[in-house]
């Protein structure tokens, strides 16, 4: 364990946090917008006959998985903006690292996601590095896993993000 970490952060490592349902059901509109953004013409996602034949109906493009748990920019009655991957933002705040980027991403795909699904996610901090200096500045790398379950309790995907939180230009 990295003992120069605040004790609060040390208690987060390995603990599932922020188990929550997505704010809306999986729907076709966002799938098509995502496909259009990368000009993905895979007929599985555009042709109902192909979708029916291969997957028993529409499924979401696998890499849209994180889209379904990202909160709205604004919602009525919400005093403070909700963040996706809240553990990432908690680390920035507690470690005093105001900037951050993602450097690595891994997704393992299980049960396909379909329109009407309501995903539940939880976040698990896996590790935090000692202080390191990169061309962006001085900071720490961290690894956060996200698990996505559908409303039937089936695992849809496991994702792992490596982020680098830093002070620009060095501490």
């Amino acid at each position: 364990m990295n003992t120069d970490l605040p004790s609060e952060v040390q208690t987060w490592i390995g603990q599932p946090r922020y188990e929550e349902a997505g704010e809306f059901e999986v729907e076709r509109g966002y799938m098509l917008t995502s496909l259009a953004s990368v000009e993905n013409g895979n007929p599985l996602f555009w042709d109902a006959d192909v979708a029916r034949a291969l997957t028993g109906g529409w499924i979401a493009p696998p890499t849209t998985i994180s889209l379904w748990f990202r909160p709205h920019w604004w919602a009525p009655g919400r005093a403070k903006a909700r963040q996706p991957l809240q553990v990432h933002f908690d680390l920035k705040e507690v470690l005093g690292l105001p900037e951050a980027i993602m450097t690595e991403n891994e997704i393992v795909f299980h049960e396909p996601v379909r329109p009407g699904d309501r995903l539940t996610t939880r976040q698990i901090l896996r590790e935090v590095s000692p202080l390191k200096t990169t061309r962006l500045g001085q900071g720490r790398f961290w690894v956060i896993d996200v698990e996505y379950m559908n409303q039937k309790g089936q695992l849809a995907a496991r994702e792992s993000y490596t982020g680098f939180g830093y002070v620009k230009g060095g501490a």
Binding site: S37, V38, N40, T63, S66, N105, Y161
Partner: peptide, 10 residues
């Protein structure tokens, strides 16, 4: 990041 994933998927 997720858009890069979408490009690789495509």
């Amino acid at each position: 990041t997720p858009n890069q994933a979408a490009w690789f998927e495509r």
